[in-house]
Every structure is written in C-alpha cells, then in structure tokens.
Nucleic acid binder design. Structure first.
Lengths: 207, 207
DNA sequence: TTGTGTATATTCACTGGTTGGTATACTTTA
DNA sequence: TAAAGTATACCAACCAGTGAATATACACAA
C-alpha cells in the first residue's frame, strides 16, 4: 500500500518538474530526470510505470500550488473586483520577467502533445484550467458581477493568451495589456449590472 | 545561383509543414520528413543545412498565407469594424472544429522551443505575430477607433489565448467567447471615441 | 554530332550517440 | 525470511548529421 508521503517519489517529481518545465517534455529524457534526482533510471521506473505517467504526475503536482498562488494574489489585493483581477496580471507580469519563466507548463505541455489528444497529461491540464475558470467565475459572482461565467472565460482567454504570446515575444508588457483588457471587461460587466433596473445599483462601482 | 522556384525544396517544405504541424517539432524526425517527401535524408540535407533550418523554413512558409487568410476573412465581412473583427473569430471557430486542426503552428513551435530563446524559428514566429498585430492596428485606425494599437494588442491576446486554450479543452466555444470579448472591446473603444468632444462624431458608428 | 568538363542534385551506407524500457541480481528493511 | 527498493548492464530502435560515390544537366569545343 502506498504511503501518504514518499520522499523518493517526490524527489523524482521535483527533478522532473524542473526539467520538463525548463526544457519541455520531449527534450528531456528519462535518463536526465533520473540523473537530476540522483538515482538510476531503473529506480525511476519502479516509481513510475512510463514516461507518460511521469509527465502526468508532473502536471498533477503543479495543479494545487498554481491555483493557490492565483488565489493568494487575488485575495491579497485591495480595491474593487476589477483591481483584484488586475492584481493577478500584475503579479504574473512580475513573474514573467524572470529569466527562468517559460510560460504555463500546462499549456506548453498541451501544445507539445497536441498530436496525442487522449494523453493523461492533457486531461490533467484541462481539469486544471477548468478549475481555475470555475474559481474565477465564483469570485466574480460573489462580487455581484453580471454573467460571471462568460466573464471568467474571457479573462482566462486573456491570461492564457498572455502566457503564450510571451513565449514568442518575451515582452512582459503583453501581460500588462492583458490585465488592462481584463479590467476593462470587468468594468463593462459592472456597468451592465448597474444599468439593470431590477437590481439596486452596486455601491462598489468606482466610477 | 538558386532558381526562384525549386520544386524539390518545395516538396520537402510541404512534407515538413504537414508533419511538424500535425505532430510537433521534436516528435518528427528528419528521416520521417525525407520519407514523406519521397527522397533520402541526404538529399534533404542538401537543401537545408540542419533540422533547425528546416523548422525555420517551415514557419517562414506559413507567414504570408496565414496573414492573407486573416485579411481575407476580415475584408469579406460586412458591417461595422466590430463585426469584421468578429468575423475572424467566427471563421477561426469553424476551422478549429476540424479534426486536423492543432492550433497555431507559430505558438506551438515557440512553446516547444521555449528553452532556445534565440532559435531562428522563434524569431520568425515573433515577426509573424508582430505583422498581424500591426495589420490589425492599421485596420482599426482606419476605422477611426480610439487607441488602435492597444486594442489590436488586446485582440491578439484573445486570439492567441483561444488558440492555446483550444489545445487543452478542444472546445470551439472558447473561440466564440474570445470573439465576443474582442467585439466588446472594440465597441468600448468606439464609445470612448464618440464621447471625445474634440472629435466630430464618426458617421460609421453603428449604434 | 560527339566528346568533355563542371556544377548541381541525388543516393547508399554509415557514424557516434541517445532513446524509452527491461532482465536480473543485489541490498535494505520490517 | 519476505517484501520493497535500488543498481548494473543491457537492448533494439531511433536520432541528427556526414563521407564518398554517383547520376543528371548543360555549356562549350572539336
């Protein structure tokens, strides 16, 4: 029976995460992961049944930490809902300026494995993105925004667009542009909400 | 002296485009390209000095056709500027429903080669995306929209976001959502333009 | 027309290295 | 002792790239 924590497995996963994110899936060999984890390939194959399995585990291990980070950025920000959404992009822009930043691991993996639609790693990526979109729709709904699900999807598109465009241009101002667009779309929803005669006008409408 | 058209080179490029787009860069071997082009690997290496060179040529060959396609979709659409921009997304959504569609080759290549920042293929991708953004800013400016460059960038972010998210979810409704967001942002710019007292109100403002 | 030189274009066979994955035996630990 | 975990050594297939020989095409001279 598997223990709840497995140090060796975690060490492999840490090494795999580092390498896969930095260099890509197919560019990193199982040998390279084993060497980085300071053990032999045979041991790695004792803990993971194949490379595909390892790749899936890599993305799975990034699921909760990533979601938690976005939530932290959102919750730590002051101001109206548009400002809190904007804060996510501001933090993202800062992270994107780091040399080691290489975009979104989920999107890059999906891009690389686009010819394997049923790959477990892509399913994990899909679930991750869905979770983020659902969380965003939830906080938007709580803030009383009109059509929170549609707005959340639009913001996700801007965010993932920024992730991807950055890989081509390496210019963090694209992330800021995405943040401005997101804030504008949030304001637009707030205006629509305020205009609706059946609802009392929201006090947090900043202008 | 090289001829203006080189059938053999073109045949290699066609085979490479097919395979690289369908399966990804590192997933396709030079042998596979040579076999698809019905010649030996050694002949391929006579026309291209390396695989990297071939990859760059592949993207270069997609530059103008892609831009022309977007321009065609835009020009063929009737209505206000927001509708013409929306038409690009509508056509994109239709294309995205095809089984063989695998997103944007430029973005996917950049995602796969993210660990090689100076790779010629990424530079070609960057130039391609810049060209599209500049073209979009130009048509927006011609339509009399406020801040055409900022708006063009936001639309590009939505479009590339749709390209990328589609690889994860395979759900064309994301493209439609991006189109709606783009149209909303265009309308927002038009409203701002109409509100500006120093400019006479534009006649093409549809509503 | 025929022969010859030359640059272009193509092929076969090969290299040295890497790949994902495994058969088997050894070591640790409960 | 028995199971879990690790290591050595190995495999067949594949990889990007190359050396040397060859085939083709065309210019020009005899």
């Amino acid at each position: 029976m598997p223990r709840t924590s497995d140090p060796t497995r975690d060490r492999i996963l840490d090494a795999a995460s580092c390498l896969f994110y930095a260099q890509g899936i197919r560019a990193v060999s199982v040998d390279a992961v084993a060497e980085a984890a300071e053990l032999t390939k045979r041991t790695l194959y004792y803990h993971f049944k194949s490379k595909d399995d390892l790749v899936a585990a890599y993305l799975q291990s990034r699921d909760q930490p990533n979601l938690a980070l976005f939530a932290k950025w959102f919750n730590a920000a002051d101001g109206a809902i548009a400002d809190k959404v904007g804060a996510i992009f501001t933090h993202l822009a800062k992270a994107a300026r780091h040399k080691k930043w290489k975009g979104c691991g989920f999107l890059r993996t999906a891009a690389e494995l686009a010819n394997m639609p049923g790959h477990p790693a892509i399913k994990i990526g899909s679930a991750h993105k869905k979770k983020f979109e659902a969380w965003l729709a939830d906080v938007l709904a709580t803030a009383g925004v009109e059509e929170p699900q549609a707005l959340a999807r639009q913001i996700v598109l801007l965010m993932d667009g920024a992730f991807s465009v950055m890989l081509v241009h390496r210019d963090a101002s694209y992330v800021e542009a995405a943040g401005k667009a997101a804030a504008a779309l949030v304001h637009l929803s707030e205006i629509r909400t305020a205009e609706r005669p059946s609802l009392s006008n929201k006090s947090q409408l900043s202008r």
